[in-house]
Design a protein around this nucleic acid. Structure first.
Length: 293
DNA sequence: CTCGTGGCCTGATCGC
DNA sequence: TGCGATCAGGCCACGA
């Protein structure tokens, strides 16, 4: 559920509360949250103990903390992951805790365990630009190298992206959600951007003109920037937020989750259709289903 | 290489 | 009251 804006706020929280802190110990409360770590949960603890994170970097929905050991701690929130500064009893879904020197501990909380953490080596990016937001370094974890630059990355090559988008035999929505083409977009902001651009997500990606893709990508940036503005300035994600559980923003939505409500543009009820084991929400009038062929 | 599908996970909610 | 089905969905492994 957390998409780029929510993950960016977590990155900022890690920047203030974790970066520069000496890790005294690591407590794993559920080994499933240590995912694909080459040395397993035990190796995860030994390799982290005594290190210090040097930065908090984000590309799309992936976070990583380069360590003074030379490796990086990779973090993905998945569906329900949160990073918190625990107060009192450990949260019911706390999976990993970092004990820090002269700082309060940092906890990884994740109800559904779609997220997780791992240690990884750093490799050079292929285009020479900063690997992600939060650092000028051109190195990123090997396990993140296949993730494309995200929609808000100044180093994103939009012309080349549109060229790739238009060469694929997939739908527009599948293209938006493919993190190897452009990263950071999830189901919520995909539906919102498509609504704003008045494009039906079922439209073949190759059928959109270059200008239509530019418009759609502009809307992707706009909805995510607005969300970031709403959540990035209003609270620190590492402190328990007001509603306690949700790690994402209460942004005003026009399509996602608005089933049956009148479209803000034309009044036609928004519809929800099952789609790839999830849902798509759109206005059937503003975003007509494309004719086949 | 490209594309589509299924599995991973827990908990809230709903119909019977 | 209990219980199974459904839904929430990002990412990756896998097969065609």
């Amino acid at each position: 559920m957390p998409e780029l804006p929510e993950v960016e706020v977590v990155r900022r929280g890690l920047d203030s509360h974790f970066v520069g802190a000496h890790i005294e110990d690591v407590v794993i409360r559920d080994a499933r949250s240590v995912r694909r770590n080459a040395s397993g949960p035990a190796g995860f603890i030994t390799a982290l103990r005594g290190t210090t994170p040097l930065a908090a970097v984000r590309r799309g929905k992936f976070l990583w903390l380069p360590l003074d050991s030379g490796d990086a701690l990779v973090v993905h929130l998945g569906m329900s992951g949160q990073v918190r500064l625990p107060d009192g009893e450990p949260h019911r879904h706390e999976r990993i805790r970092f004990t820090l020197e002269a700082k309060p501990p940092v906890a990884f909380v994740d109800q559904r365990i779609f997220g997780g953490m791992a240690l990884d080596t750093l490799v050079e990016v292929s285009d020479g630009a900063a690997a992600g937001r939060g650092s000028d370094s051109t190195r990123l974890p090997a396990s993140v190298a296949h993730i494309a630059r995200d929609a808000l990355d100044p180093a994103l090559d939009e012309s080349r992206l549109i060229e790739r988008l238009r060469s694929r035999a997939i739908s527009t929505k599948v293209a938006l959600l493919n993190q190897e083409l452009v990263s950071g977009v999830g189901n919520i902001y995909a539906d919102e951007a498509l609504w704003a651009a008045r494009i039906n997500g079922q439209t073949p990606s190759a059928d959109l003109t270059i200008d239509e893709w530019r418009r759609l990508l502009d809307e992707v940036r706009r909805v995510m920037s607005n969300a970031l503005e709403a959540g990035g300035t209003s609270f620190d994600a590492l402190y328990v937020n007001v509603n306690g559980e949700s790690g994402y923003f209460d942004v005003s939505l026009n399509a996602y989750g608005q089933t049956g409500k009148p479209c803000a543009r034309c009044g036609t009820p928004i519809v929800r259709v099952p789609w790839q084991n999830r849902s798509s929400h759109f206005c059937p009038s503003c975003q007509p289903v494309p004719r086949r062929g």
